[in-house]
Design a protein around this nucleic acid. Structure first.
Lengths: 233, 233
DNA sequence: GCCTCGGACTTACGCCGTACGATTGGGCGC
DNA sequence: GCGCCCAATCGTACGGCGTAAGTCCGAGGC
């Protein structure tokens, strides 16, 4: 045929999972999450849609991937914050971390929505929360209070509310126990906290917590705070 | 032909916007929001997909509609709560209202996700918040504090976070001013609050508020509350 | 030179929302 | 009774989606 492939031109930087995810973030940043389709993504990296599937299993994995990219970006940013003096000003440290996270999220407005649709917590999310717990423990929080605090901060900590997920999908017990052993050195604060919380309340079998209780805890923190402002106004 | 339409059988309760929306809620309740497609919806009401379009403009309108159905259900439930004694126990009243709303939302776990994708606030949502402001004003809140309070409650008030919307889509000024006049009798507390807040800070031209400030306000309420718990522990 | 096989591409399928036009059936003037 | 109208419904079709399955090409080992 006349228009045969040119023999040795077309350098064509090769695809890779990483290049795919970077392109996906770019598309979502520019056109919103609904602009991110496999065909559009292929176009962005200069390939055909089906070629993507060699590097990612399916679109869900792309979404998992870009969520992880953003949380990693957040971890990078908050990791550059100077380590706080231990002790009383935990609040300043946590505040700064959360506001920095928000700053990143404002650059990727689609991200919270994607977080909400992820079923599994990524290592990056766990790491972010582990750091947060570390700060609070240094500030004198009990493990129990840390736990409540994470729930109370909720959407404010990472720009999304978890709540309302299928409670039946947690990994089986012995399996997740193994995973915990392995994570313990990477996520010491988080694992320590969960172990203690789970120990205190054996009902919540590593899986999760009483959402109603946590919702009310967070609600009361806010209502009490508002009440105090009303009185001193 | 042999199998001609039977002359007078098939009673076939007629379609209506209302029947369509009820069916849509049922589908979402049973199979999640991703189960709600126009074809599935048509099947549920015993018609063809295209017949739906006589009663709703498009799928967006279906989503608007079912969001409104749920918020109306919430308004019904909280409306049945006995009117609170004016004065100091605003907190009990607000708390009960919010927990009741949550109860409804737990029966429709897909609803918060749909709320987040709606661009316009429905009358039902406005009504819900108007009532909330009314309770707080009776409890001694300034309009300004009410306003901060709504932001601080955020997702907890109706199970979703607004935040992060296109700031450029608010109705034009003279138009929304007219709308306000008309709403004033239906939503006295809310309109009063917004008028005062807008008056104090002319920058926010009826459109909206400084999200960063409101985010920090809510964050500090929580952090201060946690700090107090840490001290008294 | 041949073979293997990783990596990219092509085709095709079954969903989705919905534009457009045809069809139906019941109410109403005559 | 008859014809007409118009609201309500349906059939067909289009483009876009995610992706299963098969194909093609070129570099590296033998």
């Amino acid at each position: 045929m006349a228009a045969r492939n040119k023999p040795k031109t077309e350098p064509r930087t090769p695809l890779s999972r990483d290049r795919v995810l970077q392109a996906a973030v770019k598309i979502a940043d520019e056109g919103g999450i609904q602009a991110l389709t496999m065909r559009r993504l292929a176009e962005e990296v200069g390939a055909e849609a089906m070629s993507l599937y060699y590097h990612v299993a399916n679109k869900e994995e792309v979404l998992d991937g870009i969520a992880d990219v953003i949380v990693s970006e957040i971890n990078d940013v908050v990791g550059r914050i100077d380590v706080p003096a231990k002790g009383a000003d935990w609040k300043k440290a946590v505040r700064q971390r959360i506001l920095s996270a928000r700053e990143v999220l404002l650059r990727h407005p689609w991200a919270p929505g994607v977080f909400e649709t992820r079923t599994m917590m990524s290592p990056a999310v766990l790491r972010y929360h582990d750091d947060l717990v570390g700060l609070m423990r240094d500030g004198g929080f009990s493990n129990d209070l840390c736990h409540h605090a994470l729930h109370a901060l909720g959407s404010r900590a990472l720009g999304f509310t978890q709540e309302l997920f299928d409670p039946g999908d947690g990994a089986a017990d012995e399996e997740s126990a193994d995973a915990f052993e392995q994570m313990a050195d990477q996520l010491p604060h988080l694992v320590g906290m969960l172990m203690e919380v789970a120990h205190d309340d054996p009902d919540t079998t590593l899986g999760w917590c009483d959402d109603q209780t946590e919702f009310e805890f967070g609600l009361d923190v806010i209502l009490d705070g508002l009440d105090r402002m009303r009185e001193t106004a």
